[in-house]
Design a protein around this nucleic acid. Structure first.
Lengths: 232, 232
DNA sequence: TGAATTACGTGTAAAAATAACACTAATATT
DNA sequence: AATATTAGTGTTATTTTTACACGTAATTCA
């Protein structure tokens, strides 16, 4: 029971985290889903989730749960929205805080994932998910689309070094429509947060494409100067 | 204790709602704050809040709490963000879901508010608030600014019938900088969601300004046609 | 070895959106 | 009748966005 009178008489609740985990592979935007090994809804797919513990902040809980599944400690992770309909979980009253994560599939711990029954699904071939998880996914997609328009985000889905054609394919996958090559380059380079390496990637063409890196310092500098990238 | 084995062993938490309540009055954007009548932080100001009950969805809880304070049942209310640092509340571990509301000050129940110690503060003259409430407010401001750029939102802060000069003052208060009258009118009218009445408001000029109403049907129609106002 | 293939990289012009800007109109007050 | 006050209106310049086509580099295959 609560030590403090002001809080007495109020009910407590299970609070869970559910994570929408985005990856990018084979030119497709993908989600990491879990095949449930227990009832209810055994063998159906769900988002990766877990409960918030007593001495754990909600962001910490989200990172912990993500690391359990992917082995990754440093990940782009952002809170999305909280879902709290009384009957949203058929078993008990659970309030769930949804987060979305962007990870580089190459860094993901395949073995660890398999232990949890994790499978990557292309975003346009998702199975039905339990509870309100499909709703969460669709909200996460909207958020990702919007953010990538205003902010140079999404590099987290690619390897550290990437080519502009790769980056363009990523943006096309996120927005689900093709972009003009020249306009895309112009715009992304005008943001001045990419630095070109004198190194080429030849895996997808004979000529090879120059590799770039996201320049976090420059980005932080521009942010701190205020005149850039306001958001949420 | 939980009836279902899958949930056992996990801790439950207090879950609260905190509301950032916006109003617009005397050409200024304002917030409704509460002077606390109990410890801790007695006599300091805070957002209006309350706990989520066992058989109550979180949106329902937010509406209930708002009605308690303002007497208003139909209000623009939207979830903002959940705050869950372990020590954010100095008394106990409380996870708080922040909502923001837009209300028409004229409809607000003054007497009910006073019973709760509620006071309107201009947004640029806020007192320090308890816990992380200032952070919540600043997030709500950013959200409101962004939303009003893309969506024709904010009419909830005005009376049902309003003039374009009034609406412009509201937008200027939200964005905290002046707007060009002609450009503002052009843009807002081009959205085609306002209908002009053949009635004038003469309270602020001799000539009088035409009254307009937000045309929800037209708005919903445009939304349903897809080609408008994508968001979040 | 040179011809063919394949994806990479580049500039300009048209169209659309945004920003800047100043006067007349209506009416109450004196 | 003159004055004072806020409402209402159009055009031009600037910026941003969109549309669009060909030469280049390097490999592979005759």
């Amino acid at each position: 029971m609560a030590k403090h009178s002001h809080y007495q008489g109020f009910e407590k609740h299970y609070v869970a985290i559910d994570s929408i985990i985005f990856g990018f592979d084979e030119g497709k935007l993908k989600l990491l889903l879990i095949k449930r090994k227990f009832e209810p809804h055994k063998d159906n797919y769900s988002l990766m989730g877990g409960f918030v513990r007593e001495n754990e902040g909600i962001d910490d809980a989200a990172y912990r749960i993500l690391e359990d599944l992917t082995g990754l400690k440093t990940i782009y992770l952002e809170q999305l929205q909280t879902y709290g309909e009384v009957k949203r979980d058929s078993e008990a009253r659970v309030i769930s805080i949804a987060y979305y994560a962007l990870i580089n599939i190459a860094d993901y711990d395949e073995e660890l994932g398999q232990k949890h029954g994790a499978v990557w699904f292309p975003i346009d071939e998702l199975p039905p998910l339990i509870f309100d998880h499909n709703e969460m996914v669709s909200k996460a997609m909207k958020r990702l689309k919007r953010k990538t328009v205003i902010e140079p985000i999404g590099f987290e889905l690619l390897p550290e070094k990437f080519t502009l054609p790769q980056l363009q394919k990523l943006y096309e996958a996120i927005h689900q429509h093709p972009l003009d090559k020249r306009n895309f380059r112009k715009k992304i380079l005008s943001m001045k947060v990419l630095s070109m390496l004198d190194e080429k990637d030849k895996s997808s063409s004979k000529r090879g494409a120059f590799l770039y890196m996201f320049d976090k310092e420059k980005y932080d500098y521009l942010i701190s100067n205020g005149d850039y990238f306001e958001l949420v």
